[in-house]
Amino acid sequence: SASLEDVKTAVLGLLVILQTKLYTLPASHATRVYEMLVSHIQLHYKHSYTLPIASSIRLQAFDFLLLLRADSLHRLGLPNKDGVVRFSPYCVCDYMEPERGSEKKTSGPLSPPTGPPGPAPAGPAVRLGSVPYSLLFRVLLQCLKQESDWKVLKLVLGRLPESLRYKVLIFTSPCSVDQLCSALCSMLSGPKTLERLRGAPEGF
């Protein structure tokens, strides 16, 4: 439990870093931090981490990651405290083949985003970082199938509809809506759902 406290501190630090690096160059920093966060949550489900502190780590990670939004130009952003989304000039939600690297070039400044813009690109060529939603999407499927803490599952179920409104997140990387529907149906009809959940409301 003591070591998990250190892990929790590290994860919180990564969330803060991602919130900053999403809007700064090099964009590969945001890509790497995002991948680290998603990989860490995957390990929770792989090794069945069920301690309360592990659940709190997942809760905080999902609470942040499910706020990711994308505009029509595929640029990622996060809402501010007033709910207004600021889109990044440097990070996009497109999935890119590994051989192309985590970044790609664009020939010049991008068109203005639909929300308040981030800082304008400084040079004639900007390297865009790929932060594909499919990585998070796979972890969300694991959550629906394996999550043991009701608070975490409730958060994910509550945030998913709003995330799905931003269709560009889903359609720019390999996210299977069929698998999502299947996971939701299995969660509702499967007898093991109630068996594994802690803290579920009576009558769920």
Rank of each mutant, 00 (worst) to 15 (best):
T172L: 03
K167T: 05
S134F: 08
P79C: 06
R159C: 05
R58G: 00
D149T: 04
S182H: 14
E147N: 01
L164H: 01
K21V: 02
S107V: 11
S1Q: 10
L68E: 02
P112N: 15
E202V: 13
R58I: 00
G108Q: 13
T114P: 13
E195W: 07
R159Q: 06
P52I: 01
S186D: 14
S3R: 08
S48L: 08
Y23Q: 05
L153C: 02
G115K: 09
K192M: 09
A27K: 04
S176F: 08
G158S: 14
L194S: 07
A200G: 08
V11L: 05
E103M: 14
G77R: 02
L140E: 01
K8G: 09
K167E: 03
Q179T: 12
I41R: 01
L153V: 07
A125N: 14
A10V: 02
L128E: 10
Q19P: 05
L78I: 14
T24K: 10
S182D: 14
D178C: 05
R86G: 06
L164K: 00
L155A: 13
S148K: 08
S148E: 11
S182T: 12
T114G: 14
I41T: 03
A183I: 11
S186P: 02
C143I: 01
Q42R: 12
S134H: 12
T24S: 15
T106E: 14
Y23D: 04
S107I: 11
E147A: 00
E35R: 14
Y166A: 08
D94L: 04
L153W: 02
C143P: 00
M96F: 13
S186F: 07
C175S: 05
I41F: 02
V7L: 03
G108P: 11
I41N: 00
L110D: 12
V38W: 04
R75T: 03
P191T: 13
L22Q: 02
S102R: 13
V131F: 10
C91E: 03
L194W: 13
G199E: 10
A125E: 09
P26N: 04
Y95C: 10
L12I: 14
F137M: 05
E99D: 14
L164F: 03
V85N: 07
L180G: 01
Y166C: 14
T50V: 10
L141W: 03
D6I: 01
E202S: 12
Q42L: 10
A30H: 03
D149H: 06
S130W: 06
L14S: 09
S186I: 07
H47Q: 12
P79F: 05
P79E: 09
V139M: 07
I170M: 10
S186A: 14
L76C: 12
S55R: 08
L4Y: 08
C143G: 03
E103F: 13
D149I: 02
A10N: 00
P89V: 04
L73N: 11
G118L: 14
K154I: 04
K145H: 15
E99Q: 11
R75E: 03
T31E: 15
V7E: 00
S182E: 13
D178P: 07
P117L: 11
A10M: 00
G83P: 03
F87P: 06
S55Q: 08
D178G: 11
L110Q: 15
P132A: 06
K81I: 11
V84F: 12
D178Q: 06
S3L: 08
G13Y: 00
T114Q: 15
G77W: 03
P116K: 14
E97P: 13
Q142V: 08
V177K: 01
C143R: 01
A54N: 01
S107C: 12
G190P: 04
S48A: 12
T24V: 15
C93E: 03
P79S: 08
Q146W: 13
G77S: 05
E99Y: 12
A10S: 06
S163D: 01
S173D: 05
S102K: 09
L14M: 08
L184D: 01
A200Q: 09
G203Q: 08
G129I: 06
L155C: 12
R159M: 07
P161V: 13
M36Q: 05
T193M: 09
S102H: 12
L180M: 09
R159W: 03
G83M: 06
I57T: 02
K192L: 08
A70T: 05
V168H: 08
S107D: 14
V33I: 08
P174E: 11
F204S: 04
K192N: 15
L144A: 01
T24P: 01
P132G: 05
Q19K: 12
I41H: 00
T24Y: 08
K145G: 11
L37S: 02
I17L: 15
L140T: 11
C93R: 03
L136I: 11
H29P: 02
H44R: 00
V139K: 01
S148Q: 10
Y90Q: 05
V11I: 09
T24W: 15
L157K: 00
N80T: 10
P79D: 05
L67C: 14
A70D: 02
P132L: 03
R196D: 05
H40S: 02
P174V: 05
L4K: 05
S111Q: 11
T114M: 15
C175F: 03
D6V: 03
L67D: 11
E202W: 07
H44C: 00
L25C: 13
P116V: 14
S56E: 15
V16T: 14
R127I: 10
E195M: 07
A125P: 14
Y45T: 00
E5Y: 06
L73F: 12
E162Q: 09
K167D: 03
D82L: 09
L164P: 00
L169K: 04
R86W: 06
L155N: 11
L194P: 06
L180C: 03
H40Q: 02
R196V: 05
